[in-house]
Nucleic acid binder design. Structure first.
Lengths: 190, 190
DNA sequence: CCGTTCTTGAAACAGTCGTACCATAAACTC
DNA sequence: GAGTTTATGGTACGACTGTTTCAAGAACGG
């Protein structure tokens, strides 16, 4: 049958390519420098992925997979007051380890605004986190089908992440989150 | 003295270039297509702006100027409850007219994350809106030097804008803002 | 050995990019 | 008219892009 195929090679390349994209971003990505950084050749990247577009899609899927894996391996925070759960999520999201993922998220979002046609399933951007978040904050929601509260919580988290990455002022962001936690707690107490 | 200079030409070009960037984004910007769309030549763009980098800087400055002008010409909303003022700001920010500016803001933010060295004055990203917002919501702040509350309000606005541009679900975003307005109002009442 | 299949390198192709060079036309002063 | 300054087109350079083509090496089955 001839020389056997090596599907593991593609996986190894994908893993290292994802590292590279998380470290250097998507914007300036180009096959020749990427190949050099990965100790391979542009020829092999195309051999394994078909085209740059498919490579990028595979890298983004891998990055999503990694983010989900890290989220799953996070210490469970189901208990406590809503304020404590909020603090836990924020601490996890804003940790320096997550910075590459946050950066990539904002970069993809910006690209989506420029080329919506490349992201036909952007509705899935909601469902991914919606169930998790509405379950975690069910006790501060107003009734069963309250989508406003989880949306607001996610907006606060994303908005503060944007502020944090923009200004680097972690202290102010932390205090703003604390303020929101107070507001949520006061509403439950009322 | 020779042929007189025509400084108005540069202004005209800058205005049209800003239109183009607001309409098509910064990412794919390139001199030849831009010149074609502006009925001029790449030669003239460099003649007027020196380099592409300076052109982009001028366009971003012009876009900021336009945004500030629109903000200034907005109907004043100083009175009313905090919830009403919040609704007013959100309605203004999320209006379709502002969409190009919002898109450009997120695009610049993503570029800043990739190339922080190009944005040495990113601390100014705070001061621009901080005074305005802390004045508008002084009555829901906790004391004089409370920076957490304006930061939180801005985070909610930006986070909801991100959600809105990502999912297009205006109704859900509106209801989430309403939820936040309730939380703010309840806190003042307590 | 032969033949087949997978793997890989080197080079080239056609295109775009920002920019620089060179020439020339236009409008002005004297 | 000459001289000077501004404005503009055309063109080419070098670097880069994703991709293709051609060829050869490597590992296996028969």
């Amino acid at each position: 049958m001839g020389r056997p195929a090596d599907p593991a090679r593609r996986e190894r390349t994908l893993a290292r390519a994802t590292d590279h994209v998380l470290a250097h971003g998507l914007a300036g990505l180009s096959l020749r420098p990427l190949a050099a950084a990965l100790d391979t050749s542009p020829r092999m990247l195309l051999y394994d992925f078909g085209s740059k577009q498919e490579l990028v899609a595979a890298v983004l899927a891998e990055a999503r997979r990694r983010g989900a894996a890290r989220l799953a391996s996070r210490p469970p925070q189901g208990a406590g007051t809503p304020a404590q759960r909020l603090r836990g999520i924020w601490a996890w999201l804003s940790a320096p380890d997550r910075a590459p993922f946050v950066r990539l998220f904002f970069e993809v979002h910006a690209d989506l605004l420029a080329h919506p046609e490349h992201y036909p399933d952007r509705a899935r951007a909601v469902t991914d986190w919606f169930d998790t978040l509405s379950a975690a904050f069910a006790d501060v929601c107003e009734g069963e089908g309250d989508t406003a509260t989880p949306t607001l919580v996610m907006a606060v988290l994303r908005g503060l992440l944007l502020d944090l990455t923009l200004t680097g002022d972690r202290d102010r962001a932390d205090r703003a989150l604390e303020r929101f936690a107070d507001l949520l707690g006061a509403a439950r107490g009322a």
